[in-house]
Amino acid sequence: MSHSTRAVTPTAIDEAARRLAAAASTGTPCDPVRDLIGRDDVASAYAVQGRGIGARVDAGLTIVGRKIGLTSPAVQEQLGVDQPDFGVLLDDMAYTDGDVVPIGRFLQPRVEAEVAFVLRHDLADGALDVDQVRDAVAYAVAALEICDSRVAGWDITYADTVADNASAGAYVLGTEHHSLEQVEPREVAMSMTVTGQEVSVGTGAACLGDPLLAVQWLARRARDLGEPLRVGQVILSGALGPMRPVSPGATVAASITGLGTVSCTFTQEEA
């Protein structure tokens, strides 16, 4: 997908990773990294993401899953891309239904509601068709994803968001676990409120036509990149409706038919 005529150097990849890491550590959003790696160089963008995740794992964090982004045709069109992306979930990103989430850990938080899956089998071998993906799911659960961008003003191209771990921030899982015999992900309906006001609605079909197709895309992409999906991992399959900004003190709640509800409240303090 790269339209660039010049090769992206390892130095540029390192510099992009440093820029994003500095934004995260100082709490000050940075310039986009596309000046370093181009707007749509997929391999370089994932290389930057890998540097950032590697540094956090080296600091003691554990990979617990993946998030899929850009599953909505409208968002793909907005960024001028024709494929989703993914980021990595770490153990310090996990919250549970009803938790109070410190808003100061984010730079520019926005929240979306989605179906999450927890895996009972690896997705490393075989055809990775949708039947295999369905069989690998232990259960589905209602989730909120707290997206965040280290890039000032969310001024992102495809490469910027991929490099920035697909604009991942944190996530909140509901407490109701449902097998795929109990719920059909593409048929669910979602409503999300922020402090009591409905701000986002959508359906399972809004996520690449079926959240399981999003997981299939991810399973193949992750295996291609040498890091296949593993048993026990949490997979956030992509937004069912528009992403909305949140401010200090906000309570976000989502209801997804067949999966129940999930909510969190953000602290009043920004820092």
Score class of each variant (00 low, 15 high):
48 V>N: 07
214 A>I: 07
49 Q>E: 09
97 D>T: 05
1 M>S: 14
257 T>V: 05
127 A>W: 02
177 H>C: 08
120 R>F: 01
98 G>T: 10
186 R>E: 14
87 G>V: 11
34 R>Y: 03
228 P>Q: 04
55 A>K: 00
55 A>V: 03
203 T>G: 04
3 H>P: 04
219 A>R: 08
127 A>P: 10
160 D>R: 01
109 P>Q: 06
112 E>W: 01
184 E>V: 14
9 T>P: 02
112 E>T: 08
216 Q>H: 00
8 V>T: 10
249 G>Q: 12
154 W>Y: 15
69 G>T: 05
65 G>Y: 04
163 A>I: 02
218 L>E: 02
243 M>R: 10
71 T>N: 06
220 R>V: 09
158 Y>S: 10
140 A>R: 09
134 R>A: 15
132 Q>Y: 00
168 A>P: 00
86 F>N: 15
252 V>W: 01
197 Q>C: 04
267 T>L: 04
178 H>F: 00
253 A>R: 15
149 S>D: 12
110 R>T: 12
252 V>K: 07
4 S>K: 11
97 D>R: 02
30 C>W: 03
85 D>C: 12
46 Y>D: 10
231 V>L: 08
215 V>I: 13
29 P>V: 12
23 A>S: 15
212 L>F: 02
155 D>V: 08
255 S>T: 15
244 R>T: 14
201 V>N: 00
7 A>V: 11
59 A>Y: 01
122 D>V: 07
102 P>N: 07
265 T>H: 02
162 V>C: 06
180 L>T: 12
46 Y>P: 09
182 Q>D: 15
270 E>L: 02
152 A>L: 08
208 L>E: 06
14 D>N: 09
154 W>F: 11
263 S>D: 13
82 D>N: 13
49 Q>V: 06
54 G>C: 06
98 G>C: 07
250 A>W: 09
193 T>N: 10
262 V>F: 02
156 I>V: 15
260 G>V: 06
13 I>P: 02
157 T>W: 01
73 P>H: 13
95 Y>H: 12
8 V>C: 03
13 I>S: 02
77 E>C: 04
28 T>I: 15
120 R>C: 13
39 R>K: 11
244 R>E: 11
117 F>Q: 10
28 T>K: 14
242 P>Y: 01
174 G>L: 10
